[in-house]
Simulated scan of single mutants.
Amino acid sequence: MLAKCAEVMGWSGIVINGCIRDVDEINRCEIGVRALATCPVRPIKSGGGQKHVPINIGGIWIQDGQWLYADGDGILVSTSQLSI
């Protein structure tokens, strides 16, 4: 559901510091989704999220306003928009 909502809102993609499920449905969306892994078990929701806060994924800090570029091999984090 989150990927479809993000697609409707015009997002380019989502990076999830955790597991996802419903991969077939996510792959039908027109946005990129990257996660640490997949898991068939429904998540235990512990409340809302936060916006505009630094996060650390795999030892890399991602700050608000940075640009993320992803392909099948990984994710690149940049402080400015790249001309690719």
Rank of each mutant, 00 (worst) to 15 (best):
M1H: 13
K4E: 03
C5T: 13
E7L: 03
V8M: 12
M9W: 12
W11Y: 11
W11D: 05
S12D: 15
S12V: 10
S12W: 06
S12E: 15
V15N: 03
I16G: 01
I16M: 04
G18C: 07
G18Q: 09
G18M: 11
R21K: 11
D24S: 07
I26W: 00
R28Y: 09
R34G: 03
R34F: 06
L36E: 05
A37E: 10
T38K: 15
T38W: 05
T38F: 08
P40K: 02
R42Y: 07
R42M: 13
R42F: 10
P43G: 02
P43L: 03
P43C: 01
K45E: 15
K45I: 13
S46V: 15
S46L: 15
G47I: 13
G47W: 09
Q50P: 01
H52M: 04
H52I: 12
P54R: 01
I55D: 05
I55L: 11
I55R: 07
N56A: 09
N56E: 05
G58N: 07
G58Y: 03
G59H: 03
I60G: 05
I60Q: 08
I60C: 09
I62H: 01
D64T: 14
Q66F: 07
W67F: 15
W67L: 02
L68R: 09
L68T: 04
A70K: 00
D71C: 04
G72Y: 04
G72P: 10
G72K: 01
D73V: 09
L76M: 13
S80L: 10
S80N: 05
Q81K: 14
S83C: 12
I84L: 15
